[in-house]
C-alpha cells in the first residue's frame, strides 16, 4: 500500500492535567481535504502544533510519506512539505507583505533568489494581496493579516496545508473569495486540513470531516454524516437531536 501523506498513530499530549490530544489516529492521502470541527479548547490548534512540529507528542507517532517525523523540528517539517497558518496571525511585522512570503519561499520552498519574485507574486495575486506587496505587514488590518497567513503558508510550497480558522470574521463575499482560493489551491494538488467554525465554508471545500472534543476524535466521515451525527449535535446544541 502507498504510504499516506500524513499519518498519526496514537498521538497524545497533555498540558499538566489537561489532555489536549488523546490517542489520536488520523490518515490523510495526498491531495485530500479534511475539515476539523470542535468546540473551543477541544485540541484543534494543538493538533496542528503537533503535526507542524512546534509541539512534541507525549506518545504516539507522526508519519509523513511513511517516514517517522515525530522528533523532526518544525523548520525541517516545513521543508518536507507542511505549511501552516496561525489562528492568531503572526506576521513578520517589520517586513513587507512581499518579504513575508519571500522568506517562506526561500527557506520553506527552497526557491532561489531569482525565482522568488515570480513565485511570490503569483501567490500574492491568488490571495488578493498583490496590491499591498510593499506594505509593512505589521500595519495590515485583520482580514489582510489572515490573507497573509495563507499566502505565507502557500509560499513554503506545501504538499499539506494546515489552515487554522482563516474564515472567522469575514463577510459573506470575502468568505466566497476565500472558498474559491482554497479550491484553487486544492486544484494545484495541495492537501488541506482546515480547522473552522464557519461550517458552511468548510463544507464547501472538504472531502471528509472529523469532530474533536476533549482531545479525542468523536466523529469522523463524510461531512454531512458527521454534521448529522448524534455526538456532534450533542456537542453543539447541548442536547441530542
Amino acid at each position: 500500500m502507498q504510504p499516506a501523506l500524513l499519518e498519526l498513530k496514537g498521538v497524545s499530549k497533555s498540558f499538566g492535567a489537561l489532555v489536549v490530544a488523546d490517542n489520536i489516529d488520523l490518515r490523510l492521502e495526498a491531495g485530500e481535504a479534511l475539515g476539523i470541527i470542535g468546540p473551543n479548547g477541544a485540541g484543534k490548534s494543538t493538533l496542528f502544533n503537533l503535526v507542524a512540529g512546534l509541539l512534541r507528542p507525549a506518545s504516539g507517532t507522526i508519519l509523513l510519506d511513511g517516514h517517522d517525523v515525530t522528533a523532526t523540528p518544525a523548520e525541517a517539517r516545513c521543508r518536507a512539505g507542511i505549511g501552516r497558518s496561525f489562528q492568531v496571525p503572526q506576521p513578520f511585522g517589520s517586513l513587507t507583505v512581499f518579504e513575508n512570503t519571500a522568506a517562506a519561499a526561500l527557506f520553506g520552498a527552497g526557491k532561489s533568489p531569482a525565482e522568488v519574485a515570480d513565485f511570490c507574486a503569483d501567490i500574492l495575486e491568488l490571495t488578493g494581496l498583490i496590491g499591498k506587496a510593499d506594505r509593512l505587514a505589521g500595519g495590515l488590518p485583520l482580514l489582510d493579516r489572515k490573507r497573509l497567513e495563507l499566502a505565507r503558508a502557500l509560499a513554503t510550497g506545501p504538499r499539506l496545508l494546515l489552515l487554522d480558522e482563516i474564515a472567522g470574521g469575514l463577510t459573506d463575499a470575502e468568505c466566497q473569495t476565500l472558498i474559491a482560493t482554497i479550491r484553487e489551491i486544492r486544484r494545484r494538488g495541495v492537501a488541506v486540513i482546515w480547522i473552522e467554525h464557519v461550517v458552511h465554508a468548510l463544507l464547501a471545500v472538504v472531502d471528509r470531516l472529523i469532530a474533536l472534543d476533549f482531545g479525542r476524535v468523536v466523529a469522523e466521515g463524510a461531512p454531512d454524516q458527521v454534521m448529522n451525527s448524534e455526538i456532534v449535535r450533542t456537542i453543539y446544541m447541548g442536547v441530542p437531536a
Partner: peptide
Amino acid sequence: SRLGLALAATRDSMAASRSIGIRA
C-alpha cells in the same frame, strides 16, 4: 541577503519563522 531576511523573521515571530522552514 536571505539570511538577513530570515533573522528579521525570527525576531518578529520565532514560531512563525520556524514554521516557514527557517532554522531560527
